[in-house]
């Protein structure tokens, strides 16, 4: 297992380096310049370009960039999106806000999705199942920002039950209240995804022979479902739930825009539009690290959830 983990870590490092090189090249070769402010005199622009080595060939630029990263842990400084702020600091300032909203959303989504999935599977083709399935279809097919807009309009603007905007500096009840709508909007789709997936898995498992055996041995339906069926159905669920964690730090551009949440969503697009190269590369690397880390986590989690799975175990060697 350890060898497997080390191998995967090495592969992840190589992948990250390739992504870094590609990201750097693509971003630097994009049309437009970091220093395109029309107020800036050409003489100054020339000096800044020279100072940032942007007048050098791309491989030399990459060398200077890597040197900065390795020697000084310097990923560059944002020039446009947050001028003067180190690129990773820009992300570090914004991630906690997105993380808070998205983590709560996920913590709510998982149990609700599981309960709804179990109910739908146990009540297959009955009223409750139909109701849940209709909800699932709606929540999956309608984008979250539509629900967000509707909730903002009716619950906040019309009924005044919640603040229209997220309150980043408020404390206590007002802060929590201002988080309800964005969290609710973000939760609907994950709840539907988990419900649909679990319902399908459970229905398959519930019809299996060992479930029949469990029932004939006198186990109640609920107990048999939770103790045996759910456990077996939850293994493929890891494929759905764990990647959701990757989205937690990614933020949601539209929801954040709608509720004025100062999160990380949209940083990538903003930095690309603004030709803020350092921030674009840093953001790309951040997402790459999250994605690769998540993929690794999914693989390793199989072994933890199901003892039958022994990734990189002795059998393979």
């Amino acid at each position: 297992m350890l060898k497997y983990v080390l191998k995967r870590l090495l592969a992840a490092a190589v992948t990250l380096f390739i992504i870094l090189a590609l990201a750097f090249a693509v971003v630097r070769l994009m049309p437009g310049s970091v220093y395109d402010d029309p107020n800036l005199d050409q003489a100054i622009i020339d000096m800044l370009i020279e100072r940032a080595h942007l007048d050098k060939p791309i491989h030399i630029q990459f060398y200077y960039f890597l040197k900065g990263v390795v020697m000084d842990k310097d990923w560059g400084t944002s020039v446009k999106v947050e001028p003067g702020v180190p690129a990773f600091q820009v992300l570090a300032n914004r991630i906690p806000v997105s993380l808070q909203i998205n983590l709560i959303s996920l913590l709510i989504s998982v149990p609700i999705g599981i309960v709804a999935g179990i109910v739908a599977a146990l009540q297959k083709n009955r009223g409750a199942d139909t109701l849940i399935s209709v909800g699932v279809i709606i929540f999956i097919s309608v984008p979250s920002f539509v629900f967000a807009s509707l909730m903002q309009y009716f619950l906040a603007y019309k009924l005044k039950l919640f603040p229209i905007l997220y309150q980043p500096s408020a404390v206590g009840a007002l802060r929590l209240k201002s988080m309800v709508l964005p969290i609710a909007a973000l939760s609907l789709s994950p709840i539907a995804t988990i419900t649909r997936y679990l319902r399908g898995e459970l229905i398959e498992v519930l019809g299996s022979e060992y479930m029949l055996l469990a029932k004939t041995k006198g186990l109640g339906r609920f107990k048999a479902t939770v103790k045996h069926a759910f456990r077996n159905a939850s293994l493929p669920m890891m494929n759905v739930i764990v990647p959701m964690f990757a989205n937690i730090v990614g933020g949601s551009m539209v929801i954040e825009r709608l509720f004025s949440i100062p999160g990380v969503g949209g940083t990538m697009i903003k930095s690309i539009n603004a030709n803020d190269h350092s921030l674009t590369v840093a953001t790309l690397m951040f997402y790459a690290m999250i994605s690769i880390g998540t993929a690794l986590l999914v693989d390793l989690s199989y072994g933890l959830v199901d003892p039958r799975v022994r990734v990189g175990g002795k059998k393979d060697e």
Partner: peptide, 27 residues
């Protein structure tokens, strides 16, 4: 090399040697 400060030397008046000082590292 701030991008909006040449106006200190040259907005409604041209300060003697102000722009020359600001642009001296350029070409």
């Amino acid at each position: 090399a701030w991008n909006s400060t040449s106006s200190i030397a040259n907005q409604y008046i041209l300060v003697k040697n102000g722009l020359e000082y600001y642009q001296q590292k350029g070409t």
